Amino acid sequence: MTVAGSTTRPPGGGPAWDTVGPSRPGQSVLVTLAVVLGVPGLVLTAMRVLPPADDAAALVAAFIPFAVPLLGLSLLCLLVALVRAHRRAALAVLLGVVVLLLGAQLAWQLPYVVPDDRRVVGATFGLLTLNTYRGLADPAQVLAAAQDADVVVLVEVTPALVASLDAAGWRDRFPHDVGATGGEVSNTLVFSRHPLTGSRRLGSGSFDQWSTTVDVPQVGPVALLAVHPCNPYCGSGRWADEHAGLRRAVEAGLDGPLVVAGDFNAVVDHGPMQELHRLGLRSAADLVGAGWAPTYPANRTVPPLIAIDHVLVDPALAVADLARVPVDGTDHLGLLARVGRSS
């Protein structure tokens, strides 16, 4: 007979089958840490699926790739907690959610570390893009960075920087330009060893942007968009508006070959960059399998955290190589890509 309120014990005096043992030391800490890490991972993953257009959320979305380590650490905490747990159903459900989120992130990020099967056929040309940070980039280092380039896109340029480059013999290598001669110096410039034709300013954004065509020997005419849409800090929806203008310019040039290069103020996971991807553009980092290649902020106590500078190409072109280029005085790393016709 069992007295009300008592618990039936098995023979031998051991604990009853339904006895819940005391919580193991550190168990609550593991679960709490898993949730603290997992919630931002969930938010960043949701931003990849439902890209934000407002300025504040777009700033947060720049860190979407960081969901991978956040969710990975959350998964580790949950695995340890699950092994130690007396009751595991709730933890197993939470673990399953984190596994799904991490799987989605890995599906988006891992292709960037695998070289594409698109190969360059024939001759190539070098293209350097660099944000000079209000013209404060070291002119001698800019000149050195451009030694292997045939086309250079410089943004946030000042007349003083152009004068310093000219004094160092810049025009001996790059006799053709858009925005540097014939009047006021533009804050976005294109320099080239080869003739530039059909050059025109793109819209009226916060920074100058240009469309031109480079006549590259053994490659042929290549349309080039030199771009610098405003960042989300600009406010008033200008980030989304100027990216919409960039998309329209790309759509108008899809008869290719087409290169779009500059400081996009957006990572590949941002909505506007996904739209360009759906139009057929691929980043040089993606094509060569460079993986996560952050370019900003540079020359700080911390290494670059986000990749907002890009070289994008359409299906008519491929990329043989991509390198990040450090230059003193600027808060961006440059990108030097070797581009040619695709197979």
Rank of each mutant, 00 (worst) to 15 (best):
S204E: 15
P195H: 12
S186I: 00
F191V: 10
G122E: 08
V113T: 15
A149Q: 05
W170P: 04
P229I: 04
G220L: 05
A144F: 08
V114T: 10
G205E: 06
C230G: 12
S236L: 09
G235H: 11
R193I: 07
A168F: 06
T158F: 00
A240I: 00
A137F: 01
A244M: 10
G179L: 11
G205S: 15
N131Q: 07
G122H: 07
G220A: 05
A137V: 07
A137Q: 03
S186H: 06
V152I: 13
V185W: 07
L189C: 11
S164G: 10
L136I: 00
V162Y: 04
A149F: 05
S206W: 13
D215H: 13
Y112C: 07
F191T: 08
A163C: 03
D166F: 14
T188D: 15
V114H: 02
V153C: 09
Q218C: 00
L225Q: 05
L165C: 04
F174V: 08
D117C: 01
A145R: 01
Y233R: 14
V151E: 03
P175G: 08
G183W: 09
P229H: 02
A146S: 14
G245R: 08
T188W: 14
G220V: 04
A123E: 15
V153E: 02
V216E: 06
A160H: 11
T188Y: 14
L127G: 04
A137D: 03
V121C: 13
D117G: 08
H194N: 10
S206G: 14
G237H: 13
A163F: 05
S204Y: 09
L161N: 02
E251R: 10
F207V: 01
S199C: 10
V121K: 11
V142Q: 04
R238C: 15
P159Y: 06
R171S: 15
P195D: 10
T181E: 13
C230R: 05
S199W: 07
P139K: 02
W170Q: 01
R247Q: 12
R247L: 14
H176K: 04
R193N: 00
P139W: 01
G183S: 11
E156K: 03
E184W: 08
G203T: 09
A160Y: 09
A252S: 15
A146R: 04
A146W: 06
S204W: 13
V227H: 09
R247V: 08
A146Q: 08
A123C: 00
S206D: 13
V152P: 04
H176L: 08
V155L: 12
F174T: 06
S211W: 01
V155C: 11
E156F: 04
V222S: 02
A140V: 11
